[in-house]
């Protein structure tokens, strides 16, 4: 079977499993990210993580520990600052994330000995995923999936009707903080695979595609991760056969699907009112 040829290579097997896991994870949390209009936070957190990644290379500690701690702190700061009324949330995120990214760039320009690792952080290194990395990504994915499933009622209320959520006894501040921290560890798990620059796309495009397909929230929670998984799987195959960066191919696959659906909707809209397909 020609389809199974790439699986003869361990690097592809590890990369494929990690990419599909991260595709599902980003697709799932991405539903809330998109509906809560937090795409910029996802983008910002991945850039903030770059500072932590570089720092952990310099002091020679595990990427997941160093960058993980760094991104949790960045997430907490973003959460705190974005609740200040006198500064807009987007500005607050901009201050934290660009400062962190700039710190990473400053360190890179000082220590020029780990260019390869920096490239991996920026653009992902999906084919360099080790068995240990795979276990860590699996564990993080499980934690985030379970936490989001448990919190799904609170999150739906907070996302759809934030004004009423507190009247129903939802601890809005705590739930928002927990969500941002879950987002931070999702970005952490995804950065090794997709890179700082492409993580946000994996979180945004699948739920946006899902919006074309359903008008039901619970269905979106199912199909968005499935779209993420599909794009990751197809992207990995294309990357293997076309010899193009895996992270870029995954995102481009998702983008192509988006363009296809958008075009279909535009064509349908000319004849009748476009409606979700499911």
């Amino acid at each position: 079977m020609a389809l199974l040829v790439p699986f003869e290579y361990e690097f592809f097997r590890n990369g494929f499993i990690a990419a599909v896991l991260v595709g599902a994870l980003c697709g799932f949390i991405g539903v809330y990210v998109v509906l809560r209009r937090m795409s910029y936070i996802g983008h910002g957190l991945s850039h903030a993580l770059f500072g932590g990644a570089v720092l952990s290379y310099v002091v020679n500690i595990n990427f997941f520990i160093g960058a993980g701690l760094w991104s949790l702190i960045a997430a907490y700061l973003i959460h705190r600052i974005s609740h200040r009324r006198w500064v807009g949330a987007d500005a607050a995120i901009g201050v934290v994330t660009t400062s962190s990214f700039a710190l990473g760039v400053a360190i890179v320009s000082t220590y020029r000995t780990f260019t390869r690792n920096i490239e991996a952080a920026l653009f992902g290194n999906i084919l360099g995923i080790t068995a240990v990395d795979l276990w860590i990504v699996t564990a993080i994915s499980l934690v985030v999936f379970v936490a989001l499933l448990i919190m799904r009622r609170q999150l739906l209320f907070l996302t759809f009707d934030p004004e009423v959520a507190s009247a129903y006894g939802i601890a809005t501040g705590r739930t928002n903080l927990l969500f941002v921290l879950l987002l931070a560890i999702t970005v952490l798990a995804s950065t090794q695979i997709l890179g700082v620059t492409l993580v946000a796309a994996a979180m945004v495009i699948p739920p946006v595609i899902g919006r074309y397909l359903t008008k039901r929230f619970q269905t979106l929670l199912i199909i968005s991760p499935l779209i993420g998984m599909l794009c990751s799987a197809v992207g990995m195959y294309l990357s293997f056969y076309l010899d193009i960066s895996s992270a870029a191919t995954i995102v481009l696959t998702a983008a192509a699907l988006f363009i296809l659906l958008e075009s279909t909707m535009i064509l349908r809209g000319r004849r009748s009112k476009p409606a979700p397909l499911l």
């Binding site: 009622r153 009707d161 129903y168 929230f217």
Partner: peptide, 25 residues
């Protein structure tokens, strides 16, 4: 105050009223 583009059905909105009886999974 409602986001009318939010992907949610009539039944899903009304079911949110069960929240106080069923907060979790």
């Amino acid at each position: 105050t409602i986001d009318w583009n939010f992907p949610i059905t009539v039944e899903e909105v009304i079911s949110m009223g069960f929240f106080n009886n069923n907060r979790w999974f």
